[in-house]
Design a protein around this nucleic acid. Structure first.
Lengths: 305, 305
DNA sequence: GTTCCGCATGAATCGATAG
DNA sequence: ACTATCGATTCATGCGGAA
């Protein structure tokens, strides 16, 4: 597939173009500094699941927990430069235990990112019901990961309507079981302006989600699902399932926007962007992965035509 | 109800007694320093939901986010002294947004607690499915809170069997169709050293939970909810449901153990401990709360006899 | 078409043992 | 003491072929 050049800004005198729908081979810390490939304020959305810190050697090339922040900051500095002022960055990560305790590098990273200029808007929880099994004397199995929502500014674009979910059974039960007084009291305590809209809310079929993300069968969107099945990437127990970038891309971009993943891995972000008619840009150091992804994408484009 | 004195250690020459089943009126930062009321290494479990940081003045007495860590550390220092070497401390907390961004004091607090000598074992997510609706342009409604599991040592007591949950629906089908392979030890084809012997699970009814805690229905102690609503202006953490301390008390203590809540609020921890035949000790600065809790507990004890 | 059944597997973690 | 390797333990769900 040819790279496609699209104009990223109509306002500047000098028109700047950025190559999209392309995957670069190499280290993010180097490639992202290229101002021709990654101009300032050019990307609408960044989502990635960077390599986790691990002191074990069998994962060669892994970053030691103690070095993680120093390793990540130069990369996030470029991301901050590349991201559009109203864009968003979603960072999926979870610290492992070491010697029975959780590592602290993720906490330190968020503090450091704020120092670097990022706004920390929110931490979403990705709740993985079917997490890896195991039993240990000091902990249960880890069934959730962090998805940090970071931005360049306090104002940013967010298309909440595009990720509405069907109202759950709980709502009906909840309201039935509450007396009128309980209900009024709770509303006035929570948010006084809410009372007026409650009747609307009860009759609505779809509601806004919250900040705990759970993927259930119903949440699949038709054409993304088909697409996903074709690239055999619809795997619930995957490290980074298609649903995760799909959900955030819908939430933070519109058709034609540019999505960047600086650690593309097996290409999940690219598939999700493609299926949603967004442009993708990826960086991945493993040439094998890249060839596989490109082959896959070619196939998908052919079947579509 | 009379205070009950129980011996906390049979090994020491001088027998030390600690008053239990009592609520002290006052500020935790002062009362906890009393070595007669709170001897070293005397409490089996601590769980609390401290007042949230809030810079708004309408919540008088609230702690400013920027001062939160400095305010909390002297208290946690006493907790570290009071807790038994094999005990646990569960801290339920969630940072609010300020100016559109999440506050950072919780992240800083965990780092500071580690410096103070605490072991950070785990962060449990309390997933509040039925959190009330609300809509903002930059975030969805907050449906989860952090429950940090902190200890004095890497080894501690944990009674995992007491919080087992029913196995999922999948199991029934699965058990009906056991193949030969299921009865052998079967090694995964990938490099992961995960082997499994499904026959071990045959007819298993209960499994261990994971680190995302979900309560299907909230059972508030009836008039605790009412009272908490009335007093909501005092910036007490919104009463957590009885299930939360109940779950953790079962997990980390046995009958007769001592449970401490340094910010007792509307008394949920005390009710939970009492119902599970554990001893409670609470600190609360609001005399009104204390009188209500004691009255309530008296009533409960009478109905029991 | 729809349901059922067999089987594969996923960013796991701890403790013991060996070098 | 410190690091590397290996064995033991554990759920939930997707997928493909069969009934």
């Amino acid at each position: 597939m040819e790279n496609e050049l699209i104009m990223i800004s109509k306002k500047v005198t000098k028109k700047i173009f950025m190559p999209v729908d392309v995957i670069y081979q190499g280290e993010s810390e180097k490639i992202l500094t290229n101002m021709y490939l990654f101009p300032d304020n050019s990307v609408d959305f960044i989502i990635t699941s960077p390599p986790y810190a691990d002191k074990r050697k069998k994962f060669y090339n892994s970053i030691h927990p103690d070095d993680y922040v120093d390793w990540f900051l130069p990369i996030s500095k470029e991301l901050l430069r590349i991201l559009k002022p109203n864009g968003s960055f979603v960072l999926n990560i979870k610290e492992h235990p070491r010697n029975g305790q959780r590592e602290t590098y993720v906490l330190k990273l968020i503090l450091a990112l704020k120092d670097q200029g990022w706004c920390w808007i929110e931490e979403y929880v990705w709740y993985k019901k079917n997490s890896f099994p195991g039993k240990w004397p000091n902990r249960f199995r880890d069934a959730w990961e962090r998805c940090f929502h970071l931005t360049k500014n306090e104002k940013f674009k967010m298309y909440q309507d595009s990720v509405k979910v069907p109202i759950g059974d709980w709502a009906e039960k909840r309201f039935k079981s509450m007396s009128d007084n309980d209900f009024k009291r709770h509303l006035s305590q929570t948010n006084s302006s809410l009372g007026r809209n409650v009747s609307n809310w009860l009759n609505r079929k779809k509601v806004y989600p919250h900040n705990v993300i759970v993927f259930e069968e119903e949440h699949y969107v038709s054409n993304v699902l088909e697409f996903a099945t074709e690239c055999s990437n619809r795997n619930h127990s995957a490290a980074f399932p298609l649903e995760l970038p799909t959900w955030f891309i819908k939430l933070f971009t519109r058709k034609g926007d540019i999505v960047l993943d600086p650690f593309l891995g097996s290409g999940t972000t690219a598939y999700a962007a493609l299926a949603l008619n967004r442009h993708y840009v990826g960086v991945e150091k493993d040439q094998e992965y890249i060839e596989l992804i490109n082959k896959q994408i070619d196939k998908l484009n052919k079947t579509e035509n």
